[in-house]
Design a protein around this nucleic acid. Structure first.
Lengths: 338, 338
DNA sequence: ATTAACATTGACACCGGTGTCATCGTGTGG
DNA sequence: CCACACGATGACACCGGTGTCAATGTTAAT
């Protein structure tokens, strides 16, 4: 079985390579007759142009890289799904590139990756979205990229963000509306800038509702289940213990739930617990966790649309797209008793 | 900034393209002196050969595809991690390709994918691992592939498997050793052949221990949380209700836990619940779930080693590698009371 | 009828590597 | 001292496409 190349097609159709190329790329100035003739040969032979050869000639690879360093598997998975939907639609392939954001030679190894694979573009997710050194390298090398969920503004690079501050503000207000005033807060990993925003939203809501902020109620978590447990133990051991705990992701909220259960504190009866991210665990656990759902998949799709437009040098209307988070109220939160 | 190609390097080093190529590929018959000279130019200019051009010339792409259709995000993620570790080590990139195994034109769209991206190889995960039509197509097109976790034997294609039957057998025996004889069983999705094996292991253990199999205790699940809930309700409504429930994945086990909690049945005091897969939720939920851990990451790594050997036409010692599962005993199982 | 403008097509070089084969210099055995 | 094998190197075609530009044919305007 001979390989079906552009030459074979050209010969079979009785036209030149170049004309076949024109048909492939839907260029103008091909007569209807020849076009039809060529297309007929296409599906008679099952011809598919080689992305490689095409890339070599046009200096493209039709490959897009996705960079992440996130233990949250469902987050990564949603990003992948959203990204892929656009990629396949536009004829690109997605190469995944997990990396350790703490490693020394991050930049070097990324440069290797870029040059050897000749990526057309790169998608950055937190915490890479805010890495200035990385961004500068990409600009120097003129690799198109898009950032998902950065907190840092950057004039020239496009990004897609959600409003963590607002969502956190809304969640806090929701707890206040249930009558809670003693609200424990578990911060996220300090390397993720979103953590700061989530804290700000909480503080802002307290302030606007005239609730005194008590630093005792603030605990440093690390987005992990066990850090949630640790923080919960500290919070629940306070002399005047909180009636609600806002953990800034669902794994930590699950940790809180576990500790509450161990200490025979009934959720949501005696304690409201809320999370963030709408991870699968939030709906699978009992009681199910009130949380914030970010439209991650949609964000990833938009990011890729933007990136591909950039690659194709289409002007962008908007350098920064913002999406709104959504409060999902489940069983772990309830009005304050008494 | 000019692009660094093989021509530039050749010129700078004062040798021919071909000699540079020889150095790149570590071919013999290059004198030490010239080799050193060329290598010096390499890192002075930061030269990286273009995978594209190389591929075009050698009919390779250095791309490996990973195909899956699995709602279990942590499974997919582990597979990806394991696969990538070998890929990067051997200079390949991983292209992820989720697909719907129920779609009509699966084969067609996969053929498109294969020809347009010129993959060097493909990794199949369940349920694709057992799709005969797919396997035949790949053999016809002579695309090297490896199957992870197939149940179907296939003479020529290499595969990496775990022993689900044995693990399920061990788990059932473990429950029996705790004194349980009324053991409910929640089957997995019928499209996944592993489901059958897990069932066989259960049946075998019952038989070998002289326990009568009661078909009432058998329920059809679908690997989802809600199917676990449904099955649990049925099992717990039985007049002579089981003292232990073996759900064949952790999501379903979590569903059982939820129903038990709703019905005020204390786990593990009044009911032992065990799962399968060691999904994150199994350790985050309360009580944490006794489960079976498959060495998924290791399996994926081995699969890729095998695949790359196949691609490079190295003979394989073994067409089928088997890995052992591991029982992880946590808080959701306990000896039978009374 | 003549010419300019435009649509259609193909020849050919090029993208950045590798494969084949020829060439040249050197060491070895007879 | 010569024939020969072998190591080191380069010239050149080729992989499968695209870009450039020139050569046609066709149509419209003068």
């Amino acid at each position: 079985m001979q390989k079906v190349t552009i030459n074979v097609v050209a010969e079979q159709a009785g036209v030149s390579k170049k004309t076949v190329s024109r048909v492939i790329n839907e260029e103008p100035n091909v007569s209807e007759a020849t076009k039809k003739k060529v297309l007929a040969v296409f599906d008679r032979l099952g011809y598919r142009p080689s992305a490689q050869a095409r890339g070599l000639a046009t200096n493209q690879s039709f490959l897009i890289g996705l960079m992440y360093d996130n233990p949250n598997k469902s987050y990564v998975s949603e990003i992948q799904t959203g990204a892929l939907s656009i990629c396949t639609q536009k004829g690109y392939h997605l190469i995944i590139h997990p990396a350790d954001h703490l490693t020394e030679d991050l930049i070097d190894s990324l440069e290797n990756f870029l040059t050897s694979s000749r990526l057309d573009g790169l998608v950055l997710t937190p915490p890479f979205s805010d890495r200035v050194d990385l961004i500068e390298m990409l600009e120097r090398r003129q690799v198109p990229f898009v950032r998902i969920g950065p907190t840092l503004k950057h004039p020239t690079s496009p990004s897609v963000i959600s409003n963590d501050l607002e969502a956190s503000y809304d969640m806090t207000r929701y707890l206040i509306s249930l009558g809670h005033t003693k609200i424990g807060f578990i911060k996220g990993h300090p390397d993720h800038n979103a953590s700061k925003q989530r804290l700000s939203g909480y503080l802002q809501a307290l302030k606007e509702n005239g609730i005194n902020f008590d630093p005792q109620y603030l605990q440093q978590g690390y987005f992990t289940f066990s850090s949630g447990e640790d923080c919960a133990r500290k919070l629940l051991a306070l002399p005047c213990r909180p009636t609600a705990i806002f953990a800034t992701n669902d794994y930590m909220a699950a940790g809180v739930l576990k500790v509450a259960s161990q200490q025979k504190i009934s959720v949501p009866h005696d304690l409201s617990v809320v999370g963030f991210d709408n991870a699968p665990i939030s709906s699978y656990i009992w009681p199910s966790i009130t949380t914030v759902k970010q439209p991650i998949q949609t964000m990833a799709s938009s990011a890729l649309t933007i990136l591909i437009d950039t690659i194709r040098k289409r002007p962008l209307e908007n350098n920064e797209l913002q999406f709104k988070d959504e409060l999902i109220i489940r069983d772990s939160s309830a009005p304050l008793r008494g």
